[in-house]
């Protein structure tokens, strides 16, 4: 194959991938990237609870440790399998803006955060991974204040492997 031929091929290839990208963008498949922009990378990659909270809600001082609760038995005090531990959060607070679940000793403490609207209310239930015996923390931000509760969970088999 001559050199010009190879160049032609390279150009053709480039043109094809460029047009594919344009098609993808036009068909709306590029949408995930736009949604991803809202994902708080700093908060989820923080390695301590304080850093995660600062990145997520902009403050780490907790106003009160009352006013919200884990449901009894969820998370349990002892979990055999750390890969799937149920948690349930209840609260009587009003105007809740954001709720976060953290596990103190996980490589990245922040597990999930969710934003409530006036149409959605607690209790909220989910399942999380816990690497080793650790405190599970729930944080609620309501009217600019943080509320916190925690529960110590022992795990048999770590769930972040």
């Amino acid at each position: 194959m001559s050199k010009t031929d190879q160049q032609r091929r390279a150009i053709l290839k480039g043109a094809i991938s460029a047009s594919t990208l344009a098609m993808v963008a036009a068909s709306g498949l590029i949408l995930p990237q736009r949604l991803l922009a809202h994902w708080p990378t700093n908060a989820f990659n923080a390695e301590t609870v304080e850093d995660a909270l600062l990145a997520l809600v902009g403050q780490a001082e907790v106003a009160s440790d009352k006013a919200l609760n884990f449901k009894v038995g969820s998370p349990p005090s002892y979990a055999v399998n750390g890969a799937s531990v149920p948690v349930a959060i209840e609260s009587n607070l009003e105007n809740i803006e954001r709720v976060a679940i953290l596990v103190e000793k996980n490589p990245f403490p922040l597990v999930m955060s969710f934003d409530l609207t006036p149409a959605s209310i607690l209790p909220f239930k989910s399942r999380i991974k816990i690497r080793e015996d650790s405190n599970v923390i729930a944080i609620i931000r309501a009217e600019g204040k943080l509320y916190k509760t925690s529960h110590f969970v022992e795990v048999d088999i770590g769930g972040c492997g």
Binding site: H38, W39, P40, F44, A83, S84, V85, V103, N106, F108, L110, V111, M112, S113, F114, D115, L116, T117, S120, I121, L122, P123, F124, K125, S126, R127, I128, K129, I130, G159, C160
Partner: peptide, 18 residues
């Protein structure tokens, strides 16, 4: 409702709310 998940959300994620 908007939920943001990190890697520590369990496999086959489950959510329940009102």
């Amino acid at each position: 409702l908007t939920i943001k998940c990190g890697t520590a959300t369990a496999r086959n994620p489950y959510f329940s709310f009102q």
